[in-house]
């Protein structure tokens, strides 16, 4: 059904989809968000969906600045509320391919209620959470994904709370598509995004990304963080999702992969079938 392009787009093609006039971007040196941005642009260029139908939505935070640099219809809304905005867009125009980019604080901390209900409803949206364990833009406070023990601006003695295991949470709530990668997995992110565009329902991808604010506070270099990721990462598509918690302990694994890809029917598909059944006129 899909007619994706298999070859990697050229740098000029990538640039054609960027708002180059807005560069330089706001992201810090060693930040991983730009890698995800490029992967998304590549996936959009290779997808069989017309460019004009791709829409990118975000809330507030570093990751949420992404729509500002990509030449698609883009909406940078308020903190934590990218999901319900996207649900409105998608519900009245099912032709749109709506993708959300959010940080962990935006998506699951302030926006957690929308996350769980949108998965339960199974809205037909793609949600990419860039997890850097911290509120980077505001200077480094802890959030819902900060690993226990981490030092942050607001947990100077070490973080006492537990963090969300996002793939487990999404899968448990019934998300039809769940994956996790790190910014080291550029190709896998592109492939995953292309699969997500074809899911009729809530497709969720977590990308683990370095943040200099986090690494500085935890007395490591970004490059060390990346080396550590490479050392600790295990690809296991069949992993027991309860083993996916992220710990500060360097001897624990960080499990990545495509964990869930199941048959699904979105809320929007169900709703439009209802309209048809009732004889509703879409142009009415």
């Amino acid at each position: 059904m899909s007619r994706e392009i298999l070859i990697t787009p050229s740098i000029d093609e990538i640039k054609s989809l960027m708002r180059v006039e807005r560069l330089p971007h706001i992201w810090c040196p060693s930040c991983g968000i730009g890698i995800v941005a490029k992967a998304y642009v590549e996936a959009v260029l290779r997808s069989s969906i017309p460019l004009d139908k791709h829409v990118i939505v975000s809330g507030i935070g570093c990751s949420s600045r992404m729509p500002g640099y990509i030449k698609l219809d883009g909406y940078h809304v308020i903190h934590g509320r990218a999901i319900p905005f996207s649900v409105g867009l998608k519900s009245v125009n099912p032709e749109l391919e709506v993708t959300i980019f959010a940080g962990d604080g935006d998506l699951i901390t302030i926006g957690g209620n929308h996350f769980i209900h949108s998965i339960r409803r199974n809205d037909d949206i793609n949600v990419i959470m860039i997890n850097n364990y911290i509120y980077g833009m505001t200077g480094g406070q802890y959030g819902g994904t900060t690993p226990p023990g981490s030092r942050t601006l607001t947990s100077p003695y070490g973080h006492l709370e537990h963090n969300f295991n996002m793939p487990l949470l999404a899968a448990t709530l019934g998300a039809p598509y769940v994956a996790r990668w790190t910014v080291l997995h550029y190709r896998q992110i592109v492939d995953t995004l292309l699969e997500m565009f074809n899911v009729d329902g809530f497709a969720f991808l977590e990308v683990i990304s370095p943040c200099i604010v986090y690494t500085d506070m935890n007395r490591m270099e970004s490059i060390e963080f990346m080396r550590d990721l490479r050392r600790r990462v295990v690809i296991d598509n069949d992993a027991d999702l309860s083993d996916l918690s992220i710990s500060m302990d360097p001897d624990t694994r960080i499990v990545v992969g495509k964990f869930v890809n199941r048959e699904s029917e979105s809320f929007q598909t169900r709703y439009y079938r209802l309209i048809k059944k009732l004889g509703g006129d879409l142009d009415g």
Binding site: P84, S86, V87, G88, V92, N93, L282
Partner: peptide, 28 residues
């Protein structure tokens, strides 16, 4: 749904108004 419109009861009022702003930005 009788006239091709969409009704959603959201999880709270914040989501409700954000859905409304989203739908309006799709021209509805």
């Amino acid at each position: 749904p009788l006239i091709g419109g969409v009704f959603i009861q959201f999880e709270d009022e914040i989501a409700s108004i954000m859905g409304v702003i989203g739908a309006a930005n799709a021209g509805v």
